[in-house]
Simulated scan of single mutants.
Amino acid sequence: MRYAQGGGLTDAERAARERIRLQAVERFEGGEKNREIAAALRVSGRSVERWRRAWRERGEVGVRSKGSPGRPRLGPDQIVWLDRELERGPLAHGWADQRWTLARVKTLIGRLFHVSYTVEGTWRLLKRHGWSWQQPARRAIERDDAAVEVWKKETWPRVRASRRRSGPGWSSRTKPGSR
């Protein structure tokens, strides 16, 4: 089932939906028709058909909630362990450099816990537990910071000023002479 806001149900909403499905089960047992049940419970006829099929195949267990689909697959102890391993760095785990990529973290989780995450799921897990995306600062070896500062103070204002256009008929929305 998809939700317009991009999220699922809270535990309370899930429990409320389950109560409705269990009311439908009582009505199945009472012999009511799908149309009557749908109208009484204010749900779609398709939902009632799906619930009745699940009820026939597996009984009341078939219509019960299966829990949150987004529950974390790693427990609190495993998260602490993962944090420690990430702090040790990629070199300690056999990679040639000191960059953690999502693919590497995904592989590490698989090696340590025998649990498979997607790259996106790995990112959500890390973000949920306080890790952030980092971009390494890449600087040229030949970089001269003093020369960069001089350029920013002296040259850049001249370059920026020459690009400005002013005068009648010029705005950011119209082209010169289009009036």
Score class of each variant (00 low, 15 high):
2 R>S: 10
5 Q>I: 05
5 Q>V: 07
5 Q>L: 03
7 G>T: 12
8 G>A: 02
8 G>M: 02
9 L>P: 02
10 T>M: 06
11 D>K: 11
12 A>P: 14
12 A>K: 15
13 E>G: 11
15 A>H: 13
16 A>C: 06
17 R>P: 00
18 E>Q: 15
21 R>A: 13
21 R>P: 00
23 Q>N: 13
24 A>Q: 10
24 A>C: 11
24 A>K: 11
26 E>V: 15
29 E>L: 14
29 E>T: 15
31 G>W: 11
33 K>S: 07
34 N>I: 15
36 E>L: 09
38 A>Y: 02
39 A>D: 12
41 L>P: 00
42 R>C: 01
42 R>S: 06
43 V>I: 15
44 S>M: 05
45 G>P: 03
45 G>A: 04
46 R>V: 05
47 S>M: 10
48 V>L: 02
50 R>A: 07
52 R>H: 10
52 R>S: 05
52 R>A: 03
53 R>W: 03
56 R>G: 06
57 E>G: 01
57 E>L: 11
57 E>A: 11
62 G>R: 07
63 V>M: 02
64 R>L: 04
65 S>A: 14
66 K>H: 01
67 G>H: 04
70 G>F: 03
72 P>D: 09
73 R>I: 03
76 P>L: 06
79 I>E: 01
80 V>R: 15
81 W>S: 07
81 W>Q: 10
82 L>M: 07
82 L>S: 04
83 D>M: 09
83 D>V: 10
84 R>V: 01
88 R>G: 04
88 R>F: 02
90 P>A: 03
90 P>T: 01
90 P>G: 02
91 L>P: 12
92 A>Q: 14
93 H>T: 03
94 G>L: 13
99 R>V: 10
100 W>L: 02
101 T>R: 12
102 L>K: 02
104 R>S: 01
109 I>K: 00
111 R>E: 07
111 R>K: 14
112 L>P: 05
120 E>G: 09
123 W>D: 00
123 W>K: 08
123 W>G: 03
124 R>H: 04
124 R>G: 00
127 K>F: 00
127 K>W: 00
130 G>L: 01
131 W>K: 15
136 P>A: 06
138 R>T: 13
140 A>M: 09
141 I>T: 13
141 I>H: 09
142 E>W: 05
142 E>S: 07
143 R>N: 08
143 R>Y: 07
143 R>V: 13
145 D>F: 05
145 D>T: 11
147 A>G: 09
148 V>I: 11
148 V>C: 07
151 W>G: 06
151 W>T: 12
153 K>N: 14
154 E>V: 13
155 T>D: 07
156 W>F: 15
157 P>Y: 09
158 R>I: 04
160 R>A: 14
161 A>N: 12
162 S>F: 10
162 S>A: 13
164 R>Q: 13
166 S>Y: 15
167 G>I: 09
170 W>C: 09
170 W>R: 14
172 S>I: 10
173 R>K: 15
174 T>Y: 04
175 K>N: 04
177 G>R: 12
177 G>I: 13
178 S>G: 01
179 R>L: 06
179 R>S: 06
